[in-house]
Structures are given as C-alpha cells and as structure tokens.
C-alpha cells in the first residue's frame, strides 16, 4: 500500500536517521527502499518527500565523491 505523503516523509526520515554513521544513502537508494516495501508508491512522491525533508532542513545533501542524503551534522573539516 502506498503511504500518504506525510507518512512517507516520516518513513524516509527514519530511514536516513537509522543509516547515519553506517551507510550513506543516495536519493536512488531511498527510492528503491521505499518501492521495495511499497511497490505502488509513485516515484514522484519519493522525490518530493525528499525535497520536503531537505527544504525543511531536517535532511541535507552531502558530497563525498558522490551525493548523499543525510541528517545535518557539523563539517569535520571546518575544525581541523
């Protein structure tokens, strides 16, 4: 069953939160994980749920040789 939009946002947020420090997730990893559990979820929903998390500042894009979606943290390199 496809999730309603606000539930999808929370579902993705929890996924990103759970992955913190273990695996860096790409947007496509998230989409694939959602579709595995909810095969009828429209892809565009996932796209815009990620956008909502990013626009609200709950998640951020990071770049380490590839772009990932993570929970916000302070740049290590900013210190020493």
């Amino acid at each position: 069953m496809a999730l309603p939009k606000d539930e999808l946002v929370e579902y993705i947020y929890k996924m990103v939160e759970a992955a913190a420090g273990k695996k860096q997730l790409k947007a496509k990893d998230i989409e694939k994980a959602v579709l595995k559990e909810h095969p009828d979820q429209p892809r565009n929903d996932v796209k815009f749920a990620i956008k909502e998390l990013i626009d609200g500042g709950r998640c951020v894009y990071t770049y380490f040789g590839g772009s990932f979606i993570e929970c916000p943290r302070v740049e290590g390199a900013a210190k020493h």
């Binding site: 273990k22 695996k23 860096q24 380490f64 040789g65 590839g66 290590g76």
Partner: peptide, 12 residues
C-alpha cells in the same frame, strides 16, 4: 575509522 565508510572506500 571516524571519517570514512569502508565499503565505499573499497569500491572507490
């Protein structure tokens, strides 16, 4: 240990 994910580093 603190900065890098090992599977991604290996795959790189």
């Amino acid at each position: 240990r603190h900065l890098c994910e090992i599977p991604t580093t290996i795959a790189s």
